[in-house]
């Protein structure tokens, strides 16, 4: 497995875990208290999730680089660049659609904090889309 494929797996898993925890905590908090989470509570968990994401990704990338043979760590070649371009293009379209969908919750009188979380969810989904698309293309050859 090349370093770039490992990177895509690392991105997928770490984003899924860190923001999975973040959104789960928010949803559980809202269900338990039957009230929206406070901005301070949300910010606290957001910073914790981002910090955890940074630490996990840095650690995993370091291990991946150390365990990947030299030929797997070479500069991206034409096939890998095409895979990156195609996956990022797909991620862009997903983000565009989700950004447009942000107009929907406005009509249900969601708070600014909710809207920020919906926007964050859109970014998370698009990042995961890019990672999944890369993994699929790396696995099938292109």
């Amino acid at each position: 497995m090349s370093f770039r494929e490992k990177s895509a797996w690392i991105t997928l898993v770490t984003v899924l875990v860190c923001f999975g925890v973040y959104f789960s905590v928010l949803v559980m908090h809202i269900h338990a208290r039957r009230a929206p989470a406070s901005p301070l509570f949300t910010l606290h968990w957001l910073l914790l999730s981002v910090a955890a994401l940074a630490v996990l990704q840095l650690g995993a990338m370091f291990v991946a680089a150390r365990t990947t043979p030299k030929d797997g760590r070479a500069a991206a070649d034409e096939r890998e660049r095409l895979i990156q371009l195609r996956s990022q293009s797909l991620g862009y379209h997903v983000l565009t659609v989700l950004a447009l969908l942000l107009f929907v919750p406005i009509h249900f009188r969601h708070s600014a904090l909710d809207m920020a979380n919906f926007a964050l969810l859109a970014v998370v989904v698009s990042v995961m889309t890019v990672a999944v698309a890369q993994i699929v293309m790396f696995r099938r050859g292109y």
Partner: peptide
């Protein structure tokens, strides 16, 4: 791996070309 190194590509790309899964550029 040796072929990949000679043409400046990754081994995975050479494997994909060889297996007919990826068409290389004219330069490659």
């Amino acid at each position: 791996s040796e072929l990949a190194e000679k043409i400046g590509m990754t081994r995975q790309t050479v494997a994909a070309i060889e297996a007919g899964k990826y068409s290389p550029s004219l330069e490659a």
